[in-house]
């Protein structure tokens, strides 16, 4: 499996504050990868390092086998939609497409026009008068029509209402699935990611807590409910979270082999899985690490 993005010991400091430290991550190519994590985990910093908008303080990062934004050729292979979905407010929608055409060697008018039509954007409208959702659509159109090998989307959904959000994701899938583009998308909303992603990376405090195909992850995690007992004795499984009442113990485990039938076993949803890893990490962190 080739990596679309590979970071080792990656760190970024702003002034005296580390936004990302000691981050090591491998993201496979040809996937739609969801990047999740609590606020301040370093998601945006990681993505900005990946597209070359930031320079790492420590460590290194490789995207599509090259240094991010090192050359025009490298830039042409990566499409990026920033969290604020910036556009030039004085330029019309059509002028944004002309910008894309003139600044990108692989620009595809057909893709651009088709996306504009399906998003219902008027080419003559000034971008400054678009709604948040329309701006996000325009930003995505620019990023997709340059026909990148990797599309990086940093919380493109945060400003959108649920209906627009669904249309946006649908448009995203239509434009990427056929072209075989790798996608990395960060989000808070796990149900959105579940709809489009086939691979998940959970980032907590700069560290990758969990990474893998969503199907495998769901298949290997189970919720166990049974009479209260010491979970350390559970063989062949890694306990992620445990919850105890006086009589009963509830565990979320990553099982490597069938578990003791004494437990009541149930499947875990993606949202519960993600939250379990975030919570586990918050509980395991030492006070010093928490302060950081």
């Amino acid at each position: 499996m080739t990596a679309v993005m590979r970071a080792a010991g990656l760190g970024k400091r702003f002034g005296r504050r580390w936004a990302l430290s000691e981050c090591t991550v491998d993201i496979p190519a040809g996937r739609v990868v969801g990047l999740v994590g609590p606020n301040g985990a370093g998601k945006t910093t990681l993505l900005r390092l990946a597209v070359g908008q930031l320079q790492p303080t420590t460590g290194g990062i490789e995207v599509l086998g090259g240094r991010p934004a090192a050359s025009a050729a490298q830039l042409s292979r990566v499409g990026y939609v920033a969290q604020s979905t910036p556009v030039y407010s004085r330029l019309t929608v059509e002028e944004h497409l002309m910008l894309g055409d003139r600044l990108n060697p692989r620009w595809c008018w057909k893709t651009a026009r088709a996306r504009l039509d399906s998003a219902g954007l008027d080419p003559r409208q000034r971008a400054g008068r678009l709604s948040g959702g329309q701006r996000a659509q325009l930003s995505l159109t620019l990023a997709v029509a340059k026909r990148p090998d990797l599309l990086v989307l940093d919380e493109p959904l945060s400003a959108l209402d649920p209906l627009v959000r669904r249309e946006f994701l649908q448009g995203l899938m239509e434009s990427t699935v056929d072209a075989g583009v790798s996608v990395i998308v960060s989000s808070h909303v796990i149900s959105d990611l579940e709809r489009i992603c086939d691979h998940l990376v959970i980032l907590v405090a700069s560290r990758v807590r969990l990474a893998g195909g969503i199907d495998e992850l769901l298949a290997s995690h189970r919720q166990l409910v049974g009479p209260r007992r010491d979970p350390a004795t559970l063989p062949g499984a890694e306990v992620i979270t445990e919850r105890h009442t006086e009589r009963q113990t509830t565990l979320l485990v990553r099982a490597h082999q069938p578990v003791d039938p004494a437990w009541t076993v149930s499947e875990v949803g993606l949202e519960d899985l993600v939250l379990a890893y975030m919570k586990a990490d918050a509980a395991n962190l030492s006070p010093m690490e928490m302060a950081r």
Binding site: Q53, A72, L75, Y88
Partner: peptide, 17 residues
């Protein structure tokens, strides 16, 4: 100021050019 550096510097043109 408008964040458009995130747009224009992500096109296939180096910042120096």
């Amino acid at each position: 100021e408008t964040g458009t550096h995130d747009l224009v510097w992500q096109q296939s043109v180096s910042r120096r050019r």
